[in-house]
Nucleic acid binder design. Sequence first.
DNA 1: CAGTATCCGGACAGATACTG
DNA 2: CAGTATCTGTCCGGATACTG
Lengths: 95, 95
Amino acid sequence: MIDGKWKLPIICTLGDQTMRFNELKREIVGITSMMLTSSLKELEECGIVHRESYHEVPPKVEYSLTDGGLSLTPILFDLGHWGHKLNTTKEKVNE
Amino acid sequence: MIDGKWKLPIICTLGDQTMRFNELKREIVGITSMMLTSSLKELEECGIVHRESYHEVPPKVEYSLTDGGLSLTPILFDLGHWGHKLNTTKEKVNE
DNA sequence: CAGTATCCGGACAGATACTG
DNA sequence: CAGTATCTGTCCGGATACTG
């Protein structure tokens, strides 16, 4: 569901903010327009990301997490903690 | 870290049990020896899975989750719950 | 029983160039 | 600004056959 290399970085970067396309692109180092576009589209289809498009010139599109997406972040936070703890434990063993 | 198609199924199947190679292979539908071997090896290197090998004939190898691996399961459980809730919400919207 | 060796196809990430 | 189109290479997963 959140597969692909960039979904997690996007969700974490977005957090509780509302960001525009190029803001995200600048924040997420190494991502290309293509990857960002396709990842955002999939996240939107999953109901994780909300997309607000203003039909203006120049175009303006804002992305934010839906409630569903927001409810994922604490779990991701736990997961991050778990990964960190696991690594420090491993380092201790290696010493 | 837990990428690849089979890591999660393996962790979930293992749970708090100790299982042998072919037990896992039988339980996890569709997995091949290769995938199971390589996934188990990576999980072992991450410190998630413990491997106990008895040098007998016929060979006997038992796999179980380490404490680190066990501490992951509740998070995975939350994640599963989250995914489920997200889907049911989406279905409601589609109705 | 518990793997290893080898080959193969397809999906995906990335680079580049272009557009409304 | 916010994307799309196209091409390309790589790597992962899968099938099959073999082994201590």
